[in-house]
């Protein structure tokens, strides 16, 4: 079977309606719920929660900074699941999931790094420092950029999916590394949120000290760690299906 037929057989039949009306009902609900939840989360973080005594308003960025990392973690997890399932079943839909996970995870990972830098400027007095966790998080983002580059370097779709699956499974190492690095490198200045921070961590804060911090985090965490990545990945998968469909139509026209 040649590549074009392969894509064609997987393509979703075109529907008449397009845009919002064409979305599956669950996706419509999920998208609206995510948007509303983001707004509520922003209100909780920016308005409801009290101002941190030591850090002032800049601490509020944390309500997004920490949850988006876990959002990236979920998305990269989808890349691993997609990769393993693709190698087992050879169904292209699993590769589409892996691709969506890598792209959404990369976006959220970059958001995590950027919000961290904005927070670090007033608190650590520098945008960037060669702290083990910062370095590891940056390398994590570069790994997934390499993943996308690897995909672009392979023309045969079947081979591309296979190699991407293998690299997607290996790449999770850098994500796990970012998670555990503050436990095994005690010289980090990055505060740990769960459990005791390293001795020289700078910029820790007490969940109990300020009013509403726990509630604001409780609201924002599921939004950025679950709703946002899942909604974005779903849209990305639909977009990829469209791309495959267009490719198949193009191949069909060219073959005539």
């Amino acid at each position: 079977m040649n590549a074009a037929q392969n894509i064609q057989s997987q393509a979703v039949p075109a529907k008449g309606a397009s845009g919002f009306a064409a979305w599956p009902p669950l996706l419509r609900i999920l998208t609206i719920a995510t948007l509303i939840a983001i707004l509520i989360g922003l209100y909780m973080g920016l308005g409801y929660a009290g101002t941190d005594v030591e850090q002032g308003d800049v601490q509020r960025i944390f309500y997004i900074h920490m949850p988006v990392f876990f959002g990236a973690f979920i998305a990269f997890g989808a890349t691993v699941v997609g990769g393993i399932q693709y190698l087992r079943t050879r169904k292209p839909k699993w590769d589409t999931l892996a691709l969506a996970g890598a792209e959404v995870g990369l976006a959220l990972g970059l958001l995590n790094v950027v919000t961290g830098a904005i927070w670090a400027r007033p608190i650590w007095n520098t945008w960037w420092t060669w702290d083990p966790r910062l370095t590891s998080a940056a390398i994590m983002c570069l790994t997934y950029a390499a993943y996308l580059m690897l995909r672009n370097g392979i023309e045969n779709p079947e081979q591309r999916r296979r190699f991407a699956a293998v690299y997607g499974i290996l790449a999770i190492v850098t994500v796990i590394m970012t998670l555990v690095v503050i436990r095994i490198r005690p010289d980090t200045i990055h505060p740990a949120v769960i459990g005791p921070s390293a001795q020289n961590a700078q910029g820790t804060f007490e969940l109990e000290a300020t009013r509403g911090v726990g509630a604001a985090l409780g609201m924002n965490f599921p939004v950025w760690a679950l709703l946002v990545p899942i909604t974005l990945m779903w849209h990305r998968i639909r977009l990829q299906n469209r791309v495959d469909q267009v490719e198949a139509m193009k191949a069909e026209v060219l073959n005539q």
Partner: peptide
């Protein structure tokens, strides 16, 4: 493992450092 993949790609030699350095970081 990674070199076996990258020699089969279009970019060939240049891709290995990019895909291998992050994974070799630990």
């Amino acid at each position: 493992l990674l070199a076996t993949m990258t020699v089969q790609t279009r970019a060939r030699e240049s891709l290995l450092p990019i895909v291998m350095l992050p994974v070799a970081l630990p």
